[in-house]
Design a protein around this nucleic acid. Structure first.
Lengths: 234, 234
DNA sequence: CAGCATCCCGATTGATACTG
DNA sequence: CAGTATCAATCGGGATGCTG
């Protein structure tokens, strides 16, 4: 009969600096990756686990509780037809977008970049937004439907809008004139590693419905930063 | 005679997403705060401890090793006159500036903001840069020397340059026409909580050498964001 | 004294099993 | 599906001690 610890003393940096207070809330292990998974809209517990293949359910559970407690995430129960619980970012939580993108931009230049390995579909979308080059897309207005097959063989649909030098991606395919179907690695190869899209289409790793030229233009919007800059220092 | 574990398997998210890779490198506890302390220039081990009052020396040591290993920080030995080791951000490490500022900006809107408690002088400078309002400083060109007394009674000197809607702060006072002397809490009260500067001067909590009007203008450059937006959700 | 290395203990994490 | 329970492994934090 041990009294439940109850942890009413959450660990904190006790530093008035905004950075430290932010880290008090989202600095624990996995927390920002959970936020990343929620940036494009609400998800169920299982969806989160699918995007974060290595997280333990108890840790995910704890992180979601903490985020809800902090007002970053809200847990909602969908009405009866589905009747499942989903987790959604609050408006304030969604502002972590800038933090996640800044980290992504920085982390992309690390050495030992292993761009080819597994990435969730949501992570891929974050990468798209990370490497979107406003200048390359200047004066372009276009829409695309993306059908991305993840490592779990499930396909996620996204709608990408390019306008005013801005890329906006939302979950769910719309009625875009150009649809791109691909697995995550195939998409990465074409968009980031600049492999030939036509070749990917002929080999069948990618499928384009609609305007092939528009799809090729889409791949031009993304630029990987100037390689890692840091050399071994030790 | 136990074989030293040697940890050659550093914990990783094993996720190709840039965010995850960034967090592999700077996502451990304390790591980003160590970076924050180094943003304004190199520091010794003890200086870091002073700015991070709650970190254990062994953890700081470990974090510095990891950061050096990752190419974020470089350890240098100053030439004989001083002959101490200092830690400095690499060029790539300094790019974490955007990440720290994004976190700071987000964290400043948390509820339970306790802006009045202890903050290191470096953290205060990060806050200044966080809340600097480009529009408020538009078409202003000015320089200031800041003499900030921290909680350890030591005084740190900074040089702030406002130009082109930009605030640049470097360590070390220059020859600015306006010098502001204050403790960290006094400075916070005037700049962020908008207490009267003249009053602070007359009560002696602050001292201005040079142009008092310029100093008052300086305090106008900083705007705290629209309060915390999240309400209790539980 | 600066800059760690060591030891110890409690807190956190991770893998797996289990339940409503 | 959506988590909770359990337990082992690891990590963080404080005290102390070593080394130049």
């Amino acid at each position: 009969m041990k009294a439940a610890p109850e942890h009413r003393t959450k660990r904190s940096y006790h530093d008035a600096c905004g950075t430290a207070r932010a880290l008090d809330l989202v600095g624990e292990r996995w927390t920002l990756l959970v936020v990343r998974e929620l940036l494009l809209g609400p998800k169920r517990f299982t969806d989160l686990r699918a995007g974060l293949p290595a997280i333990s359910p108890n840790v995910l559970s704890q992180r979601l509780d903490e985020l809800a407690q902090a007002g970053v995430v809200r847990k909602r129960k969908l009405p009866p037809p589905v009747s499942t619980a989903v987790y959604d970012l609050t408006e304030w939580g969604r502002e972590l977008d800038t933090v996640v993108l800044a980290l992504s931009r920085w982390g992309a230049r690390a050495r030992n970049a292993y761009r080819c390995s597994d990435m969730s579909t949501d992570a891929l979308v974050v990468s798209l937004r990370t490497f979107f080059d406003a200048e390359a897309a200047e004066s372009v207005s276009a829409e695309y439907d993306l059908y991305l097959t993840g490592s779990d063989a499930g396909t996620d649909e996204f709608h990408a809008v390019v306008a005013d030098g801005t890329l906006t991606v939302t979950r769910g395919a719309g009625s875009a004139p150009t649809a791109i179907h691909a697995s995550v690695p195939a998409f990465v190869a074409v968009v980031f590693d600049k492999h030939s899209l036509r070749e990917a289409v002929t080999t069948g790793t990618m499928e384009i419905n609609g305007d092939l030229t528009a799809a090729e233009q889409f791949t031009e919007f993304f630029r990987i930063p100037p390689e890692c800059s840091a050399n071994r220092a030790d």
